[in-house]
Amino acid sequence: MAPWTRRGRLAEGLRTYRLVAGMWVRSTMAYRASFAMTAFGNFAATFLDFAAIMLMFSRVDALGGYPLSEVAFLYGLSAVSFGLTDLGIGSMDRLGRRVRDGTLDTLLVRPAPVLAQVAADRFALRRLGRVTQGALVLGWSLTRVDIDWTADRLLLMPVMVVSGCGIFCAVFVAGAAFQFVAQDASEVQNAFTYGGTTLLQYPPTVFAKELVRGVTFVLPLAFVNWLPATYVLGRPYPLGLPRWLAWAPPLVAVGCCALAGLAWRAGLRSYRSTGS
């Protein structure tokens, strides 16, 4: 078999991902009742999440200057991007466990990219619950927000969601790479994944400037929805950045994924040289 070329690698990775994810879907179907319950639970968990926001708005009219409809808009965008990523590669935080119990080795002796095998690990359709809830909230907000729908704003919507997935993917992969070094530290990843999506569900005006700067320039989560969404809503971004940055998310996503890919390779290399 010819050594993988760059494109061949990607195709091989996607093929592996499909194969392994398919096996997991069939595995979960062995426990249908539990699947139904966890799918619903997944939906309900995120629903309660939003219920808390609605409860807040039962007492106030605006949060950080944003009315409920606009907070829901931010919430929906963050939840859909995160939900799709979580559905796709949400089990990457189990890598530390695989390293600890040695089952990562069984993936390394197969003729398939390890990243794809780990990404598809424990693929669970129940995570559709989160995406569904996010989409519902986003849909509801769109009926309420007052947006001047120009062509570029309309185009920015799908660009935003896809780029958001890219950025969150990078966070998941980098987090998994970190677990090669610190196997017990899977919770750190939650701070950036679940913490990240929670942060983005609220308006940037709520948070301290330093925190907003941090998630704009250091860990660029702000490009998932804050920057582009404030543009769509016609609101100023708290840091007073140029408007065209609303179109930066695709570039940011590509950059983040490249960095995460490097981190992954470094992590895997260190695993293969230390075996710990």
């Binding site: 949060l63 530290a185 913490g195």
Partner: peptide, 25 residues
């Protein structure tokens, strides 16, 4: 220990996020 440190970090991050939303509220 590593798991505990990771947990402390995560709890702190979530605390930070919540504390700002509560402040706004």
């Amino acid at each position: 220990r590593a798991a505990t440190a990771a947990g402390v970090f995560t709890n702190t991050v979530f605390g930070l996020i919540l504390v700002y939303t509560y402040r706004a509220l």
